[in-house]
Design a protein around this nucleic acid. Structure first.
Length: 347
DNA sequence: GTTAATACGCTC
DNA sequence: GAGCGTATTAAC
């Protein structure tokens, strides 16, 4: 539908291949009678172009300039297996799982007591194959991830580093070994402190770095398609936003420099993108588990504990006015029960 | 029936 | 004006 067609059909339904919907009039909202229904077309192309131009990505990735050679710290030898969790490579002097952005779970783990071994074991008792399953997922994530994952998207995520709650295990080694008798615990503690300091520095850095919103939007769109994740689910669970908002952001991302409070939404996207695959899927789940019929391609994270990006909200499918009742069947991975960590909530 | 795209109004 | 939610649509 081009401008002329749209104008010609300014009264009446404007149909065009390749384009979807568009509000048709208003009824009553927020107790205020809205303007009467009047069929509209989608925005004319000219308007789209103006908007697109206005939102064209102008940001420049601020990549860390001082990349230091790989080095291992005593923390890498800790029984708390951040380092053991991924095959490691080093970026910026810190350890990073291959295929993931720098500064992921392997870094900056808060100094917290280790959970009892039994606790950790219980966490993995969900999986047939237990440890192997999880490790394999990580490796497959790295190997199957598209090439862009090997490229810095910036900024390095501070959001991907959350405190480890008793209910979370994802950054723990699946089978945490007992401390070896010769392990220097002091060195380990020092390493933890270093990690904390680095985390704080990273957080400060993130506050000032820019995100290439267009690239981020493209990657998010690709991942949603890749796993068949509905926009509504992702928007609600990860971004604490509506489907319409997410759609708009993905299709018309504003340059980082032009964003204000909206940066937080893109940060959440970026954060999610940094997560390991299984943790991304975990973030998509709800506490309430309606019957559902959807699945995420290639996901195998049912029953895994997870952390929520948002306080759980009830999902209402767009266009469905009222509760969405899913037909019986296995739930999609993002709606299996979980224990909210509560460390990240909608603002 | 589900999903994504869009217009428009509301809040800050 | 930015950011977002709601309502609504067409496409699938």
């Amino acid at each position: 539908m081009d401008v002329e067609q749209c104008l010609l059909h300014s009264i009446g339904t404007c149909k065009a291949s390749g384009t979807r919907g568009g509000g048709v009039g208003r009824v009553r909202r927020a107790g205020v009678l809205q303007s009467p229904a009047r069929p509209r077309c989608r925005r004319p192309r000219a308007m789209d172009e103006v908007r697109a131009r206005d939102r064209a990505p102008l940001t420049v990735i601020v990549a860390p300039s001082n990349v230091s050679p790989p080095r291992l710290s005593p923390a890498d030898l800790l029984p708390d297996g951040d380092a053991a969790f991924h095959p490691l490579s080093a970026v910026n002097g810190r350890l990073t799982p291959p295929g993931l952005e720098p500064a992921s779970y392997a870094t900056l783990t808060p100094l917290l007591p280790l959970p009892p071994i039994s606790t950790v074991s219980d966490k993995f008792a969900y999986h047939a194959g237990g440890t192997f399953t999880v490790i394999q997922q990580q490796q497959s994530y790295a190997s199957l991830s598209p090439a862009p994952y090997n490229e810095p998207l910036s900024p390095q995520s501070a959001y991907s580093r959350r405190s480890v709650s008793p209910n979370s295990f994802e950054r723990r080694s699946p089978t945490p070994p007992l401390p070896s008798p010769g392990l220097d615990l002091n060195a380990a503690l020092l390493a933890r402190e270093e990690q904390q300091q680095a985390q704080q520095a990273q957080q400060a850095q993130n506050d000032t770095e820019e995100i290439n919103t267009k690239e981020l939007a493209q990657r998010i769109s690709g991942e949603l398609k890749r796993y068949s994740i509905p926009q509504a689910i992702f928007a609600q669970r990860v971004l604490c936003r509506s489907q319409g908002t997410l759609s708009d952001l993905l299709r018309n991302p504003k340059p980082w420099s032009k964003l204000k409070s909206g940066r937080e939404t893109f940060r959440r996207m970026w954060k999610w993108l940094q997560e390991p695959e299984f943790q991304r899927m975990s973030a998509l789940r709800l506490a309430d588990t309606p019957n559902q019929h959807q699945t995420i391609k290639g996901d195998n994270v049912n029953n895994m504990h997870q952390q929520s990006y948002c306080q759980p909200r009830e999902y209402q499918a767009p266009g469905a006015h009222g509760h969405t009742m899913y037909p019986p069947g296995p739930p999609p991975p993002w709606e299996t029960p979980y224990e909210p960590a509560g460390d990240v909530s909608c603002l």
